[in-house]
Design a protein around this nucleic acid. Sequence first.
DNA 1: CATGTCACG
DNA 2: ACGTACGTGACATGA
Length: 567
Amino acid sequence: MQANAVGLSFAVTPGEAAYVPLMHNYPGAPKQLNRDEVLAQLEPILNAKQAKIIGHNLKYDRSVLLNHNIRLDGIKYDTMLESYVCNSVASRHDLDTLCEKHLNHTNIHFEDVAGKGAKQITFDQVELEVAVDYAAEDADMVLRLHQIFWDELAQKQNSKQKDLYLNIEVPMLKVLSNIERNGVLVDDKLLAVQSKQLSERAQEVEKQAYELAEQEFNLSSPKQIQEILFVKQGLPVVRKTPKGQPSTAEDVLQELAVNYPLPKLLLEHRMLSKLKSTYTDKLPTLINSKTNRIHTSYHQAVASTGRLSSSDPNLQNIPIRTEEGRRVRQAFIAPVGYKMLAADYSQIELRIMAHLSQDERLCEAFAQGEDIHRATAAEVFNTKLDNVKSEQRRAAKAINFGLIYGMSAFGLARQLGTTRTEAQQYVRLYFERYPGVKKYMDNIREQARSQGYIETLFGRRLYLPEINDKNVQRRQYAERTAINAPMQGTAADIIKRAMIQIDGWLQQIQADCKMIMQVHDELVFEVQSDAVEQVTQEVTQRMVAAADLSVPLVVDVAIGSNWDEVQ
DNA sequence: CATGTCACG
DNA sequence: ACGTACGTGACATGA
């Protein structure tokens, strides 16, 4: 949203590339072609639907060009997405890493030409003679990488991956670019008020904590908290961190708070300072001065399961679970004359589990539109639906979540606050009542072992090299991933398909509606008030139709004037 | 830069 | 004996 083009580089034949400098600006810089004239002349090519432009992370190039009012619709291939589809478990998909890995070639690094840290210069200050090698190399390498990836994707046995790449990931690039550029309106005055309230409360808590500790200390320092709690006050050590220090994590403090007063204050202070520093103080600083809105970045090649991630700011972890936190959402607003509309998939991962496992009882429960946790409770506790106690439903809900995560009896027991034996009992009962699920879990583990990977419904492949590891921990971790990834990943595929359809519809009818956020199973829109009914209908229909499962996909829609009201 | 912690689905 | 539910990103501290 902020960057300007300094130059353009192209390659049409491997081993040859050109750099067109436009805006290099340093003492003695040579005269260059006028940027806007060059871009205007290039636009028919960049924007031609039949053009076959290949790039690396073209979402970024598209956005920079849009800053100059140039559209980049000739996108055909993106090597970052090719690498991601070929192996999403690989930790990085940046150009330098891919060149090392696939071309055995070390690129000129950006830091080599621009320096690093506080002394780093911007690319327009880089001398032409230096810039040309750096920029032209990029174009050449992208072309070479594409040839390698395309050979891999076009292999016949990988056709599902090719479809995933061409029909989901490449089209998504433009959808995400649109969402990012749309941005979201945030009420900075409200956040300022909240910041003030949070710091006032935090100060009171701080004062009380000093009295209880009989000294001043930094409540944000785990090290100092350890000293006070476990050395000075001699409280029992509940758990240790991976590095062997006594843990002061939330669940530990919760437990200690039953018998001692200080942990409760620490918990409250933690909550208040988290909300203030990460949200109410930070978000207002990220409002773009040109658009008066916040523009996140979505990352399409980060999460191994196929999910998106969001950063700068992360709009996928805005608080909702506590009363205090939720208030942050009141600052995400629709402008006058517009409404906020949120559409979320109901229980999508469990529905996918029903589909993948084809378990009869589970499919039937969804077909009947039952409350799935209640239905599970009725089965596990062998009672009528109407007689399910709230405690039983809570346990069933924990079991259902546990299943999605590839649970152990230990994990379930801890979640439920019960014994491991009892948790094991629940798991056994569950699998007796849902034998299809049991069979599916065993099959997917076995499939992961024999193939070394698992796949989502739409062919996204996750390699699990540690599935046969000698190390029990690593192997079990890979097994849990094998269980979880097909469900989380299929859900990611489905919402991406819906987003592509919805974006296409919005462009086509020129609706007064913007898609503004995605939070894994939820889409958020800003809709002109008169269009709310139409958008509700059209969005729901496209989300529901995004996959044809053995069970219905259900979408809940809510409308309000801010993000808190639509949950 | 590592660590611990905590926000979300 | 050990660690223990999946996937993320951001912040403060402290070396």
